[in-house]
C-alpha cells in the first residue's frame, strides 16, 4: 500500500470516528432497549440479571458461544505441533512450588463457587470456568519440569469432559423441549424456581452455569496448554 492511500484511509477512519462519536453523543435515542432487569426475577427466579439473560432468555446464544470455545480448543489442539517441548529447564524456587500447592485448592474452590452462585451473585459459568482453568494451567506450568509433563487432567480426558458437557447442555435443552415443548425452556417446564437468592433456585440456570463453566474451564485449559507446550 502506498503512503498516499494509507494517508487517505487513516484520515477517512478519523473522520468517520469523529462523526460516529459525535452522533452517538448528540443524537437522541427514539427507542431504548428493553430493560430485562425487572423481569428476570419473575421469569427465571435468578437474582443475577446477566445470568438470567445468558442462560435463559438467550440460552441459544450461550450454547453457540460455548460451542465456539469448544471448537477453538479442538482446533488449537489439532493444529499445534505434537512434538514434546521441554521449555522449562529452569528450576523454580521452592516458594513457588509450595505456594502453588497451597493456593491451588482455594483457587479451584473459588472457581466452582463462582459457577455455582452464578444466578444469585455476580459471576457465572464463564467467569468460574476461567478461574478453574487458571488453576489447572498453574499446576501444569509449575510441575512440567525437565521434559516431563504433568496434567491435572489428561488430554484425552479433557476431550471426554468437553463432549460430555456439550451433551449435557443439549440434554438440558431437550428436557425443556420434552416438558414444555420448547428447547432450553426453563420455568415453563414446571421445574420449581425456588426462593430467589438461594443456591438451589432459578430452575435450569445453575445447571447450565455449571455445564458451561466446565466447558470453558476445560476448553481454556486445552487452549493454553496447547500453546504453552509449543
Amino acid at each position: 500500500m502506498s503512503r498516499i492511500s494509507a494517508a487517505v484511509l487513516v484520515s477517512g477512519i478519523i473522520v468517520f470516528g469523529v462523526i460516529i462519536a459525535f452522533e452517538l453523543a448528540v443524537a437522541p435515542r427514539t427507542a431504548d432497549p428493553l430493560n430485562h432487569a425487572p423481569l428476570t426475577l419473575r421469569d427465571t427466579g435468578a437474582v443475577n440479571a446477566v445470568s438470567a439473560i445468558l442462560f435463559d432468555y438467550r440460552a441459544l446464544d450461550t450454547l453457540g458461544e460455548a460451542t465456539v470455545i469448544l471448537m477453538t480448543a479442538t482446533v488449537v489442539a489439532f493444529l499445534t505441533p505434537r512434538a514434546k517441548a521441554s521449555m522449562l529447564a529452569v528450576r523454580l524456587s521452592s516458594i513457588v512450588l509450595y505456594g502453588v500447592v497451597l493456593l491451588l485448592p482455594f483457587i479451584t474452590i473459588l472457581g466452582i463457587a463462582v459457577m455455582a452462585h452464578g444466578h444469585v451473585s455476580p459471576g457465572g459459568g464463564f467467569t468460574g470456568g476461567v478461574i478453574v482453568a487458571t488453576s489447572t494451567v498453574f499446576y501444569a506450568v509449575v510441575y512440567s519440569v525437565g521434559g516431563q509433563q504433568s496434567y491435572v487432567i489428561a488430554p484425552a480426558a479433557n476431550k471426554l469432559i468437553e463432549n460430555t458437557a456439550m451433551t449435557a447442555f443439549i440434554g438440558v435443552g431437550l428436557l425443556g423441549l420434552g416438558l414444555a415443548g420448547s428447547f432450553l425452556a426453563n420455568a415453563q417446564t414446571g421445574i420449581p424456581l425456588g426462593t430467589p437468592g438461594e443456591l438451589l433456585s432459578a430452575g435450569t440456570i445453575p445447571m447450565l452455569n455449571l455445564i458451561s463453566g466446565v466447558k470453558v474451564g476445560v476448553g481454556l485449559g486445552i487452549i493454553v496448554m496447547s500453546l504453552f507446550l509449543e
Binding site: F16, I19, I20, E23, L24, V26, A27, P28, R29, T30, A31, D32, P33, L34
Partner: peptide
C-alpha cells in the same frame, strides 16, 4: 441495538425508520 432498541429483524423496520441521526444507517 443502541438506537432502535431491538435485535429482532421482524420488528426492526419501523423502529429503524423512526430512529434519528446517522448511527442507525451507518
Amino acid at each position: 441495538y443502541l438506537t432502535t432498541g431491538t435485535l429482532d429483524m421482524q420488528s426492526l423496520a419501523p423502529r429503524f425508520d423512526a430512529a434519528q441521526g446517522a448511527v442507525p444507517a451507518l
